[in-house]
Write a protein that binds this DNA or RNA. Structure first.
Length: 668
RNA sequence: UGGCCUAUGGUGUAACUGGUAACACAUCUGUUUUUGGUGCAGAAGAGUCUAGGUUCGAAACCUAGUGGGCCAACCA
C-alpha cells in the first residue's frame, strides 16, 4: 500500500521482523500512556506520533491509557486536557483506559508473587533501604526482612491493603537480586502505603502499585504488542521483562501475548525546555501567562500561537525516530507551519509600524474599493474589496531616504507598487523637529501595467481598524537552556520574548473570529487570540515569512549562525593532511593533483614528530599512506635527515600493489 | 569504581542487513512573481568519532579507546 521503499525507522524494522517471525498483523496493538499530572507538550507529540502513527500505518488499535498510580500528583483536569490535545492533533484512540482499572488484578497477581516467594514485605525505613540498595558502582545488600515466611508476607500485605498500617511503615518488594548491576533489579518496590484520594478510585485503596509493577502488566492486560517509550526507560526493560515473565506464567491461557518494550530518543527542541516541572516554574513564576501562553512549547500553547495539527504532525514525521540524543532546530517546526499556512491562510494587509503616505494627486474626498485576491495558492479562496484613499500607512521600514543599493522599496524619486492598487512615486518628505521623516508625499499613477521592482502592502488610514498585535521571540537565549550544569535555566530567559504593538488593519478583518488565521502580507502568519473582545481584536504572530532581505542587513551581535565554515586554520596541518589522505584514492585525477598541491603546502607546517606516527598506518589505508609520503617528500626536501623508520616506510610503499602509492614512492 | 544506550554534512533522519553515503531543514545561486513570500532550477557542504581487526570489499560486523546520554524518588 505504500510506495515500495519508504525507509523504515528502527521500530518499524522490529515490527516487520516480528511479523515475519509469526506475529500476525491483527495482534498489533499500541498504547500512549501519559501520567495525568500536567499538560502535554511538543515532546509528547513525538511519542503520540509514534504510537498513533504506527496504529495508522498498520491499521492497529491504539489505547489511550492514563498511568494514574500516584494519586498525590494526578488530577482530572489533566486527564481532560490531555484528551483534548490528542483529539485536536487528530488522533483517535481505541479505548480510554486507566492503570487504576487494573488495581485489583495487580493485587491478585501480587499475592501470587508472594506465594511463589517472588515478593516480600519490607518493614524498614526508606533511608535504610536506600543504603542497602548500594550505588551504580557498588552492589547492594539484602534486607533483613527478605527471608520472611510466605505466610507472614501474605498476612502483612493483606493488612497493608486493609489499612492497618500508617504510610511508610511497610512496602512490598520483588525478590530479585541485590547485587544486580542494574539497580532497578535490586528488589524493586511494588507497593507503597498511601492514604491519598485517587481521582478515580476514591478511597478504595490505600496501597498503590509502583510504575514498574503497573506499566508492563497494564500492557500485558491490554495485550499491547509493542510498548514504546523513551530512552530513559531502557534500564527498566530488564525489570519489565522479569515481571512480565511471572505474570505470563500465571495467565498465559487467557492472555497469550507478551508485550515487548522498545525505547526511542525523546525530542528536544532548540531554545526551549521540555520538562513539565520546569514548565510549571515558568507558569508559577509569572514568566508566561499560563500553560497555554503562545510562547510555551505545550500543545495548548502551540495551538493558541496558531500552529495547526497538520503542521505538528508533519514536524514529527520529519523529525524521525532513532536512539541518539538530539536537538532539533526550531527552524524545522517553523518550516512545517509555514508550509501548511501558505496553502490555507488568506492574505490580508496590515501595517504594524506605520509611516504616513499622502498621495497628493488623489482627491481628498475620493475613495475606491479595489479588488484583492484572498489567496493565490488557493483558487477557491475568492476575492475581497479593500478601500483606497488619499492617506495611507505603509511600514516605516519600507521607506528610506538614503537607501542602500539593494533596497528596492520606496525611496525619493522612486516608484513602487502598492499591492492590489496603484503605483506611487515619492516626491518629498515631511520631517519633525528631530529630523525624522513622518510623512512621505507621493503621486500615484493609474497605469498599473508597468514593471516596478518593489511591491508594498498598505492600509487606508481612515478605513483602518486597529488591533493589538503580539509578537513573540524565543523564550530562551540559550540553545539548550536546561542542559547547563552550572546555571539554572531561568537565567537564560529572554526578557524580550513578547512585543505588543498596535496594528492598523484593513477593515475586512473586523469580522475575524477567534482562532482564524491570516497571512499579513509580507509580514507573516497571524491568528486571532482568545483574548480578543468583540471590539478589540488581539492577534498572535504565529511565525514570520522567510525573509531573504532581512538576512542581507547587518547581523545582530550574537548571531547564532550555525552554518559557519569549519575553523580550518585552527586545525593542525597534520590532521588536515590525514583527512585529505583518506579520500585521496577516491578522487578524480584532476582533483587529486589539486589535493596533492594542498598537502604539499600544508606539509610546510608539519614537523617530523607529527608525521612519524603515521608511518604505522594500516596497510589498507593507502590514501593516508600516500598523503604521508607526499608530506615526507616535502620534509626531506627541506632538509630532513633520512633514518631507518623513513626508509622502512618508503620500502614498504614501493612493495605495495597500489600504483599511486608506488608512483609516489619511486619519485622520492 | 560498575551496567546499559549512543556516535553519519550546521541540524535531524536514511543507506534494501557488507559493494564507496541519500533525503529534509538550514545555507547560497539563478529564475518566476502585484508578497525580498510561494513555485521552479541549481550549488556548496560529510567520506560516516579514533585506532586496530575480519573481508576481495566496512558507515554497517568484532575489539579497544574517546565523547555524549541514562541508572541510587515509598515519581512516572
Amino acid at each position: 500500500m505504500s510506495e515500495e521503499k519508504k525507509p523504515l525507522n528502527f521500530i518499524e524494522h522490529i515490527i516487520e521482523e516480528d511479523l515475519v517471525n509469526g506475529l500476525t498483523k491483527d495482534k498489533l496493538r499500541f498504547r500512549f500512556p501519559p501520567e495525568p499530572n500536567g499538560y502535554l507538550h511538543i515532546g509528547h507529540t513525538k511519542a503520540i506520533g509514534i504510537s498513533f502513527g504506527l496504529g495508522e500505518t498498520y491499521n492497529a488499535p491504539v489505547n489511550l491509557r492514563f498511568d494514574d498510580t500516584n494519586p498525590a500528583k494526578e488530577e482530572q483536569e489533566y486527564v481532560d486536557a490531555i484528551k483534548r490535545d490528542i483529539a485536536w492533533l487528530g488522533y483517535q484512540w481505541e479505548n480510554e483506559l486507566y492503570s487504576s482499572d487494573y488495581f485489583q488484578k495487580l493485587y491478585d497477581w501480587a499475592l501470587q508473587m508472594i506465594k511463589n516467594s517472588n515478593a516480600y514485605v519490607d518493614s524498614q525505613s526508606s533511608e535504610a533501604m536506600a543504603v542497602q540498595k548500594g550505588t551504580p558502582t557498588q552492589v547492594g545488600t539484602n534486607s533483613p526482612y527478605r527471608i520472611r515466611s510466605i505466610e507472614e508476607n501474605l498476612d502483612l500485605f493483606q493488612r497493608m491493603k486493609a489499612g492497618e498500617f500508617p504510610a511508610g511503615t511497610h512496602v512490598l518488594r520483588a525478590k530479585i537480586d541485590m547485587e544486580d548491576p542494574n539497580m532497578l533489579m535490586r528488589d524493586p518496590m511494588m507497593y507503597r502505603i498511601m492514604y491519598a484520594h485517587h481521582h478515580r478510585t476514591g478511597d478504595d485503596w490505600c496501597i498503590y502499585p509502583m510504575y514498574d509493577w503497573t506499566h508492563g502488566e497494564s500492557d500485558y492486560l491490554e495485550q499491547i504488542s509493542h510498548s514504546l517509550c523513551s530512552l530513559e526507560f531502557k534500564p527498566h526493560r530488564k525489570l519489565y521483562d522479569w515481571f512480565k515473565e511471572h505474570v505470563y506464567d500465571y495467565s498465559k491461557d487467557q492472555l497469550p501475548l507478551a508485550p515487548k518494550q522498545r525505547e526511542f530518543a525523546r525530542l528536544n527542541l532548540s531554545y526551549t525546555i521540555m520538562s513539565k516541572r520546569k514548565l510549571l516554574r515558568l507558569v508559577e513564576g509569572g514568566v508566561v501567562t499560563g500553560w497555554d501562553d503562545p510562547r510555551m512549547p505545550t500543545i495548548s500553547g502551540l495551538r493558541r500561537r496558531g500552529y495547526t495539527p497538520n503542521s505538528i504532525r508533519k514536524f514529527i514525521e520529519k523529525v524521525g525516530v532513532a536512539k541518539r540524543e538530539n536537538i532539533i532546530d526550531v527552524s524545522l517546526l517553523e518550516f512545517c507551519i509555514r508550509e501548511d499556512l501558505n496553502k490555507t491562510a488568506n492574505r490580508v494587509m496590515a501595517v504594524l509600524d506605520p509611516i504616513k503616505v499622502v498621495i497628493t494627486n488623489y482627491p481628498e474626498d475620493k475613495e475606491e474599493w479595489l479588488e484583492a485576491e484572498n489567496n493565490q495558492e488557493d483558487a477557491s479562496a475568492g476575492f475581497r474589496k479593500v478601500p483606497f484613499s488619499r492617506e495611507i500607512y505603509i511600514e516605516k521600514a519600507d521607506f528610506k531616504e538614503e537607501p542602500s543599493a539593494k533596497f528596492f522599496r520606496l525611496q525619493p524619486g522612486g516608484e513602487v507598487r502598492l499591492k492590489n492598487a496603484y503605483i506611487i512615486k515619492a516626491n518629498s518628505v515631511v520631517k519633525n523637529e528631530k529630523g525624522e521623516v513622518i510623512e512621505v508625499h507621493c503621486t500615484y499613477d493609474e497605469d498599473t501595467s508597468k514593471k516596478v521592482k518593489g511591491t508594498l502592502h498598505w492600509v487606508s488610514i481612515k478605513h483602518a481598524i486597529t488591533a493589538e498585535i503580539r509578537e513573540y521571540d524565543r523564550l530562551f537565549m540559550h540553545e539548550s537552556p536546561d542542559s547547563d550544569k552550572d546555571k539554572d535555566f531561568m537565567e537564560f530567559i529572554n526578557p524580550n520574548s513578547l512585543t505588543v504593538k498596535t496594528g492598523y488593519l484593513e477593515p475586512s478583518l473586523a469580522q475575524a473570529k477567534i482562532g482564524e488565521q491570516f497571512q499579513f502580507q509580507r509580514l507573516g502568519y497571524f491568528n486571532v487570540d482568545t483574548d480578543s473582545k468583540s471590539k478589540t481584536l488581539v492577534f498572535n504572530k504565529t511565525v514570520g515569512l522567510r525573509d531573504s532581505w532581512d538576512k542581507q542587513k547587518p547581523k545582530p551581535k550574537n548571531n547564532q549562525n550555525q552554518n559557519k565554515p569549519k575553523p580550518q586554520q585552527e586545525r593542525p596541518a597534520i590532521s588536515l593532511i590525514q583527512q585529505f589522505g583518506k579520500k585521496y584514492t577516491n578522487l578524480p585525477e584532476e582533483k587529486q593533483s589539486k589535493v596533492k598541491a594542498e598537502i604539499q603546502e600544508l606539509a610546510k607546517n608539519v614537523s617530523y614528530d607529527e608525521l612519524e606516527p603515521l608511518f604505522g598506518t594500516a596497510v589498507k589505508k593507502v590514501g593516508t599512506r600516500i598523503a604521508t609520503l607526499i608530506t615526507l617528500k616535502v620534509l626531506l626536501k627541506n632538509g630532513l635527515e633520512h633514518n631507518d623508520a623513513i626508509s622502512e616506510f618508503i620500502n614498504k610503499a614501493l612493495e605495495d600493489k597500489n600504483e599511486l602509492l608506488v608512483a609516489e614512492a619511486t619519485t622520492i
